[in-house]
Amino acid sequence: MDYNNPNFVLMVEDLTVSFDGFKAVNGLSFYVEPNECRVMIGPNGAGKTTVLDLICGRTKATSGSVSFKGKELLTMREDQIVLAGVGRKFQTPSVYEDLSVFENLELSFPRGHGVFGSLFFRRDAEVKERIAEIAETIFLADLLDEKAAFLSHGQKQWLEIGMLLIQDPELLMLDEPVAGMSVAERKKTAELLNRIIDHRSVIVIEHDMGFVEDIATRVTVLHQGKTLSEGSMERVKNDPKVIEVYLGH
């Protein structure tokens, strides 16, 4: 990788967070290129989810720098980070259960995000068309008026992915998007993800190795909050250090 490439979408440098002395992420650095799909793997407790939390502002870093298209994210609020173009999907499906699928998607539509913007938000043709289009993509076109609470686990995951798509982020972060899905749903999701990771940078946390090999441009192996190995799937797989701590089990 060319580390002097000024066109990195995301530059994470020397990122550290400490919880009462325990360093969950310790001096981590990595760089994401445009249109790259970066997969993070690593044993439980390696700090994968924490890294995503740090990038999207959910957890405050102790030190280091996260720069997204030249903007320092560590000093920004979560919503500002999102509006700058970073989307985040949580590990457990988190959708608004009391609202309909349509309303769920509408709330993610990138307009009317201020207090008064949302007070005077109009549900015009553009909004409706875009929502219909996204609903088609995430296989929920027939369920637009259904309350999200009545969706299956897999459908909720798709809905959340749809909510991210409608935001159209430049950097998409997915935390175990196929966990807890049936085989059929998993296949459909893989297909969906393959379609949506085009034209944007993606960071994925995933345990399913078949799935990882399928989508990854580059893989980062985390271990105890640090990078253990980085590179193509082929290279990482054959790295003796990785074999020892992770794949070897």
Binding site: C56, D79, V82, G87, L107, P110, S118, E160, M163, Q167
Partner: peptide, 8 residues
């Protein structure tokens, strides 16, 4: 989720 949909 609201926060990470870009709302303050």
């Amino acid at each position: 989720r609201v926060r990470f949909s870009g709302y303050d």
